[in-house]
């Protein structure tokens, strides 16, 4: 089915020209993997006048680890992440999340930057980047800007990206101590599904914890109360039970076609429990291998 809306297509070869195009046109949209955009164009929910395909901007295709920081360029697909040695070794949680995104044919095209720019509440990358306290790096004609992930998501499909800005990459600081991570995602079946609840957890060697939920509020969110309750403590069953009691204060799930708020709330607790245990186990060098589903 062709797209009904007429638009102009550009494939700039320099980042400057790309930025020119999006700054000088009120109704421009960026095309990277296109797995969300093309659907929106077909459905008529996106009606841009110009589409700027950034796939010729080779600089944005980089996965780089330098100065203790991971750079994920705007053109890096989930398949690229899965195939990267540095990801598998240093950021196994990024690998675990990437593995749950859709299916191969989508992962070969879809990018993590595209994922956070679409900013749907159930996005897989959201909780992950929250627990890593990543930054979103954007460029415009005015220069560069670094947006902490906590300030990035403004609402359902709303981000802090301003007119004329292009996301160039995500940067993830490498934790300065040993971590164990876990990503748990709830689907209606084993195949590709939009998460009904997702949670990313990172346990640090010094008994610090970072926890972020997705699909249970308009944006992904850090579970600050749970984190401060747990921080400094060694995880045990009793502690987990207490922490679970805090979950209703943290999240506000809704009932929709995919799940009821009751089940979402229930599963958030189950997933938190299983996730935190696994994260700690992984921190200690055992536990399930990364990539194994906990639900």
């Amino acid at each position: 089915m062709s797209i009904l809306q007429d638009f102009d297509y550009f494939k700039p070869t320099t980042i400057e020209f790309a930025i020119d195009l999006i700054s000088n046109n009120k109704n421009a949209t960026i095309l990277a993997g296109g797995t969300d955009l093309i659907v929106n164009l077909k459905e008529g929910t996106a009606t841009p006048e110009i589409v700027v395909d950034i796939k010729s901007l080779k600089d944005l295709k980089k996965i780089e680890f330098k100065d203790n920081c991971l750079i994920i360029g705007a053109l890096v697909t989930f398949t690229d992440l899965l195939e990267s040695v540095v990801i598998k070794e240093k950021f196994p949680l990024v690998w675990e999340v990437s593995k749950t995104v859709a299916s191969v044919g989508i992962r070969n095209r879809a990018t993590m930057v595209g994922n956070i720019c679409s900013a749907v509440p159930c996005l897989d990358s959201g909780p992950l980047l929250c627990v890593y306290e990543a930054d979103v790096n954007v460029r415009s004609s005015k220069g560069k800007r670094k947006i902490p992930i906590k300030d990035w998501f403004l609402g359902n499909k709303k981000t802090a990206l301003k007119h004329g800005e292009l996301v160039t990459h995500i940067s993830i600081p490498f934790p300065n101590q040993k971590t164990g991570g876990c990503y748990v995602r709830l689907g209606r079946y084993c195949g590709e599904d939009l998460a009904q609840v997702n949670v990313a957890l990172l346990a640090f060697a010094n008994n610090a914890y970072r926890i972020a939920f997705g699909a249970v509020a308009p944006t992904p969110l850090r579970a600050n109360k749970i984190e401060s309750f747990l921080n400094g403590k060694k995880i045990n069953d009793h502690l987990i039970e207490q922490a679970k009691e805090l979950i209703p204060d943290e999240i506000s799930p809704i009932t929709d076609i995919r799940a009821t708020k009751e089940y979402r709330m229930h599963m958030a607790k189950v997933m938190f429990e299983r996730g935190i245990k696994t994260a700690v186990e992984r921190l200690n060098g055992d536990g399930l291998e990364y990539g194994e589903s906990l639900v």
Partner: peptide, 8 residues
């Protein structure tokens, strides 16, 4: 409307 995949 979910129909089974090879994983199901």
């Amino acid at each position: 409307y979910k129909i089974p995949t090879a994983m199901d």
